[in-house]
């Protein structure tokens, strides 16, 4: 799927994705020449179809995880059946300002559809960094959801 600014004959560039939390998705594109913006709005069925392909629109921002589609799609997925993955960053190798993800937080992140997981991870990461939080835990994620109004993430 490509977006073309007809007036400028230029490919429009990806700006951002938004998940209102009702199963729909909004993806904003802008023309690099005239700055005109347009939004792709998908209904819940279309959003699910994209998710079901196991792809990330705009390119992958995190590597694929084992069974990520099953994890994010199966109701009642028994996350306890698998050990929590290792934290996203090893504390020994953290750089200044970098935020660590705990195992349970990483596990929860895996339940986010892959095609928006990178964006969701970045939002939580920025939230933690701005507040001097060194490790993201499920409790921090819950607090961020309230503070930032991230319903559906």
């Amino acid at each position: 799927m490509k977006f073309l600014c007809v007036d400028c004959d230029r490919v429009m560039e990806y700006v951002e994705r938004r998940l209102p939390g009702d199963g729909t998705m909004a993806v904003v594109y802008a023309c690099p020449a005239c700055d005109r913006e347009t939004a792709l709005l998908t209904n819940p069925m279309e959003t699910r179809l994209v998710s079901g392909l196991g792809i990330e629109v705009g390119g992958r921002t995190v590597p694929p995880e084992p069974l990520e589609l099953v994890r994010s799609s199966l109701e009642g997925f028994e996350s306890g059946s698998q050990p929590a993955p290792p934290a996203v960053e090893d504390s020994d190798t953290l750089r200044p300002g970098q935020v660590r993800w705990s195992g349970p937080a990483s596990e929860r992140l895996l339940a986010v559809p892959s095609f928006v997981r990178g964006m969701v991870k970045r939002i939580y990461g920025e939230y933690a960094a701005e507040r001097g939080i060194s490790e993201i835990t499920p409790e921090i994620m819950d607090r961020a959801r309230i503070d930032l109004g991230l319903e559906g993430m």
């Binding site: 199963g23 209904n43 819940p44 069925m45 699910r48 069974l67 099953v70 994010s72 799609s73 199966l74 109701e75 009642g76 997925f77 028994e78 059946s81």
Partner: peptide, 16 residues
């Protein structure tokens, strides 16, 4: 799949 889903819960996919 029955090793991944909760025991006795039907296999249901999230979606609209």
């Amino acid at each position: 799949m029955d090793l991944l889903a909760r025991e006795d819960s039907p296999v249901r996919w999230r979606g609209p």
